[in-house]
């Protein structure tokens, strides 16, 4: 028995001549919230489908909860696909219970749990509403609940936040936090960096089917330099001479610049140089790189290299 919830070893998936996932390896330890990040078409969904044995990999091995096929452990896995669909004619309660049943739950128990979940997440009055009468956001919440009704050990959510308004995004975050508190291992894919930053312990960044980064969020941030963002009417080029400044980037809007610092360089030297050189500052802000910057740098570099 492994201590990994999911392990992909040198997995490749080809569709005819197109390579969707290319020699990808990654490890998801038990109990962590793992983010799959990457631009559209990076291979996130294909990776997820292979993890769930919906697709067979062309080469490489997949191990989920210590098994080669996700169907062997279907009772312990929950899955929310990217494209959300519901049986229109089914009632919310029945739908959740049906999917619970397919995960091995006893039908009566599944119905009880469905009602409990709907009430817990603010859908108590829609228990007996047909899915076609639910709003898009409500339908999506119902589907999330359907994927976790059987209290799985391991949950995979593909773009769970897409199409949700801020209030419902918060509810969904609550669902994820509750699952995490219950010790559930969670993998979710997203391209909204703020969610990943708030929720994930670890992330993997995928671009064009390849792994670009795998690690914790602090590690990810450290992988790109920090910078100072300034606004000035003067010419900022004297700052290039400052030790530790590697580049000055002109931003959108007149007079906005990012002064890029090498690792370990201190921003106060930049500030002093501004005063000395008579650079008139109207704003000066130290910026720690966000996941967004990591994403743009790594994915942008990959796109440019292609």
């Amino acid at each position: 028995m492994t201590d990994l919830a999911l392990r992909l070893a040198r997995v490749t998936k080809k569709f005819d001549t197109f390579t969707a996932v290319d020699d990808l390896s990654l490890s998801v330890p038990f109990g962590c919230v793992y983010g799959f990040l990457g631009p559209n078409g990076a291979g996130k969904t294909t990776t997820i489908r292979m993890s769930l044995s919906i697709y067979e990999p062309t080469s490489g091995t997949v191990e989920i909860l210590g098994h080669r096929s996700a169907l062997d452990v279907r009772q312990q896995i929950g899955y929310l696909p990217e494209e959300k669909g519901l049986y229109k004619k089914m009632k919310a309660k029945e739908l959740i219970a049906f999917f619970g049943g397919l995960r091995g739950m006893d039908p009566a128990e599944a119905r009880r749990e469905a009602v409990r979940l709907l009430e817990r997440y603010g859908l108590g009055e829609f228990v007996n509403t047909r899915c076609e009468a639910l709003s898009k956001g409500m339908g999506q919440k119902v589907q999330v609940l359907a994927s976790v009704v059987h209290k799985p050990k391991f949950v995979i959510l593909d773009e769970p936040f897409s199409g949700l308004d801020p209030v419902n995004q918060q509810v969904l975050e609550q669902v994820i936090q509750d699952l995490r508190a219950a010790g559930t291992t969670i993998v979710f894919s997203t391209h909204i960096m703020e969610h990943a930053e708030r929720l994930c312990d670890r992330i993997v960044l995928i671009g064009r089917g390849k792994r670009l980064f795998d690690g914790t969020i602090p590690e990810a941030k450290r992988s790109i330099p920090s910078c100072v963002r300034i606004h000035t009417v003067s010419d900022p080029s004297p700052l290039r001479a400052v030790r530790g400044v590697t580049d000055i980037l002109r931003l959108e809007g007149a007079g906005h610049y990012d002064v890029v610092l090498a690792e370990g360089a201190q921003p106060d030297e930049v500030l002093r140089t501004c005063f000395r050189s008579g650079i008139e500052l109207s704003s000066f802000e130290r910026r720690e790189p966000g996941l967004r910057d990591v994403f743009l740098k790594l994915v942008g570099g990959e796109e440019a290299a292609a």
Partner: peptide, 17 residues
């Protein structure tokens, strides 16, 4: 066709063969 168009198949196939 409904199940395919609404992508319900994907959830189904993660639970059943």
């Amino acid at each position: 066709v409904e199940e395919k168009a609404s992508r319900i198949f994907e959830v189904l196939l993660s639970s059943v063969t």
